[in-house]
Amino acid sequence: MEHTETKRELIIKEASRMMYERGTGVGVDTLVSEIGVAKMTLYKHFPTKTDLIVACLEHMDDCHRARLSGEIDWTSSPRDRLLSVFDSLRVWFATPSFRGCAFVNATVELADTSRPVRNAVHEHKNTMRAWVIKLVEECGLPNTQFVASQIAQLMEGATTTALLERDPVAADIAQATALQVLDKAKESKMSESKMSSRSP
Rank of each mutant, 00 (worst) to 15 (best):
L89M: 07
M60T: 13
R115A: 01
S77K: 03
V28L: 07
E138S: 06
R8S: 07
S196R: 15
R79P: 01
M128R: 12
R81M: 05
A38N: 14
V136C: 04
S97A: 11
A152P: 02
L82P: 00
R65I: 10
S196V: 09
T30P: 08
D61V: 04
V91A: 14
V54C: 12
T160D: 09
I173W: 07
S16V: 02
A130P: 01
A66C: 02
V54R: 06
P96M: 01
M40S: 14
L179N: 05
S97E: 14
D183S: 12
S199P: 00
L68C: 08
T144Q: 11
Y43S: 03
Y20F: 13
V104L: 15
S33I: 08
I53E: 11
S149Q: 11
L52P: 13
A111P: 02
S196Y: 05
M40Q: 10
G70N: 04
N126K: 11
R65L: 13
G36I: 15
Y20H: 06
R67G: 03
F46A: 04
M1S: 11
N119L: 14
F146N: 04
I11G: 05
A111Q: 12
A55I: 06
M190A: 10
I133F: 02
R65K: 10
R115I: 06
L163P: 04
V147H: 00
V136M: 01
M128K: 12
F98H: 14
L163E: 12
F98D: 11
G140N: 10
D62Q: 10
A111H: 13
T159P: 02
E71Y: 07
L83K: 01
K125L: 15
S33K: 15
M19C: 05
V28H: 05
P142K: 03
A106T: 15
S188F: 05
L182T: 01
S149G: 10
V121Q: 12
P96G: 02
A178Y: 00
